[in-house]
Design a protein around this nucleic acid. Structure first.
Lengths: 353, 353
DNA sequence: GTGAAAGCGCTAACAG
DNA sequence: CTGTTAGCGCTTTCAC
């Protein structure tokens, strides 16, 4: 029956191969491959027959065979330090959508902080099963960068500069400055900042930039910066809640406004203020960064950093690169936009001068 | 030099192959394969030589070639409806860790609600590049189930019964009942419930079970259930905030306690209560489910459902299955534990009888 | 536009 | 315990 000599039943263990489709369509495997992949020219007649046969057989290419033969795998890695935090899961969701649209598979590599960092970098990423990878908030030391380069994996970074690699990010310095200036514009002079952990420098390179933006804005307005008002809270709600409670404990020396580097921290700060009997924005103005959905209920003013779009844009650049467009390792800066709600307002009773 | 006839430079574009290692170690490719994979017996002397040679060459197997030849890919899919929600990202993180530990790659398939559901089910999952998959909160209709079965992908379900498939979950009915009974035990008689959306039945099959548990507990205590107190809030903080605000608006007819099917909803409820000038637990007791970290700052009483462990356990079962242990499609029920904090307390002024 | 055939790099019998 | 060898299923020159 089948010219190939081996008629097969197409059960779960014996799925149809290219050869089967070729037999059924009365063409060669080469033609089937071309017709199905879209590479190379095929007469529309042949194409129709092939598609018909493929459909009837329920044929779907074997990605391992295809990848082995072609060297391409339609599989892209996403590397990130955490997946259960809003920013990362949102970037991930954006990247996943863009990859899905393009028909690419997504391999997830989660560091869990530092737990799997080495393993991922020195083992998983080198298995030559990725066409490319997007690295979120990742700082590579020279050795690590060299390894990935040696593995020949095109890389795009998100949310922090990666030397020699094209990147998508926002301007964290500017964002920190603008958030602070919003507060200053409302008359605040006593403004505290809640940022990421020291350890965080590794994964949140931008965090210190946001803090720097705060310092610059304060300096620019001739306002003093109390070192005790530069706090660290791990980007979490609960961490910020505790820090803020301590910060706001002294009614005579507390700030009138807080700039938090994430919305979760900003929301935690608002809760802490209320638990101390303070009103927002009456006694305390609070601004965050993210446009995290939780901000809505808190009436939180924030700067939307379009996290999802960072993920989709990273994938777009990667795909452009893979299809020939050799983009230079430029840093693409996405805009961030104010979302003003009710957590910021004019300072109530000016302290100091 | 190389017996194979083709000496190669091992740059990024020409990585060392098994043959190169074999040449260098002075053995056959079969021995190298056995030595490196651990399958079959190899003299420790040969093994040492091979490992040495492989190390010197920086050899790492081509997973595509290996998969094509062996039929195994060391790649497991994780299918979920969302990744930017706490429960799902936490289960994902658990699964990712377990897979990493086992040296498996993880392919992520995110439905984004319904957006990619069809695509994933009828396209991506059928590409025969997965050894198995874990499906989180997924309801398959018979056709879909048949497709996956036909693709021969061993499946483990998490967080909801999947017919004919081994599953990991908690007892949602029981959890709903216990949460409610905790409230009843504190003297509450007017207890509302906040659950998932109707649409949610597709992805949160347990949600209605939790609601059922609430109803059962109420009935068991002889307490009336006001239909207006059975609310839907999509599992989100902000959704719950709005629902709760309406629910609590009438001072004479509001409940004295709320059981929310997730901690985010419970926290949103607490915020809404405070915005109305109510104290928690003085005027309103609130209990959630999850042990979401945000609950700490809210002093939220909850039932820990060990989401992360659900993910790791699912992977463990899958791996056991792949290594021969043919587990029957049993449903493994994980325990949930009370975490009592300050959001629940004795009812203040009993209403009614 | 289409077919024949040579691999892609590794694994798994099968001998020895 | 080790080598030989035949594929795994698809892609891609190279002729026609």
């Amino acid at each position: 029956m089948a010219e190939h000599g081996r008629p097969r039943d197409h059960g779960a263990l014996n799925p149809p191969r290219l050869q089967d489709v070729a037999d059924r369509a009365g063409v060669s495997t080469a033609t089937v491959s071309r017709a199905l992949s879209g590479r190379g020219h095929v007469s529309s007649r042949a194409r129709a027959k092939v598609q018909q046969a493929a459909h009837e057989l329920g044929f779907v290419v074997s990605y391992h065979a295809s990848s082995l033969a072609s060297g391409r795998s339609r599989n892209i890695g996403v590397v990130l330090p955490y997946v259960d935090r809003w920013y990362f899961s949102t970037v991930l969701e954006g990247a996943a959508g863009a990859l899905m649209d393009a028909g690419y598979d997504l391999s997830l590599y989660n560091f869990e902080g530092d737990r799997y960092r080495e393993t991922v970098l020195t083992d998983f990423l080198l298995r030559k099963r990725l066409d490319a990878a997007v690295a979120v908030s990742l700082h590579l030391d020279p050795t690590e960068a060299a390894q990935l380069l040696a593995a020949g994996i095109p890389l795009v970074g998100v949310g922090g500069p990666l030397e020699g690699v094209p990147t998508i990010s926002i301007d964290d310095l500017d964002v920190g400055r603008r958030a602070t200036e919003h507060l200053i514009g409302l008359g605040h002079r006593r403004i505290a900042h809640l940022g990421g952990a020291e350890e965080g420098r590794r994964y949140f390179p931008m965090s210190s930039d946001r803090r720097d933006g705060w310092e610059q804005a304060m300096a620019g307005a001739g306002l003093p910066v109390d070192p005790a008002w530069s706090l660290i809270a791990d980007y979490t709600f609960t961490g910020a809640y505790q820090q803020a409670k301590n910060l706001l404990a002294d009614p005579f020396h507390r700030p009138t406004a807080v700039f938090a580097s994430s919305d979760e921290m900003a929301a935690g700060t608002i809760l802490a203020a209320r638990d101390l009997g303070l009103t927002v924005p009456g006694d305390l103005s609070v601004i965050g960064i993210d446009a995290h959905p939780i901000g809505e209920a808190f009436g939180l003013t924030t700067l939307d950093q379009h996290a999802r779009q960072q993920g989709t844009r990273a994938v777009e650049r990667l795909l452009e690169h893979l299809s020939g467009g050799s983009d230079e390792p430029s840093n693409e800066v996405l805009p961030a936009h104010f979302v003003v709600r009710s957590s910021t307002g004019p300072v109530a009773a000016p302290h100091g001068t």
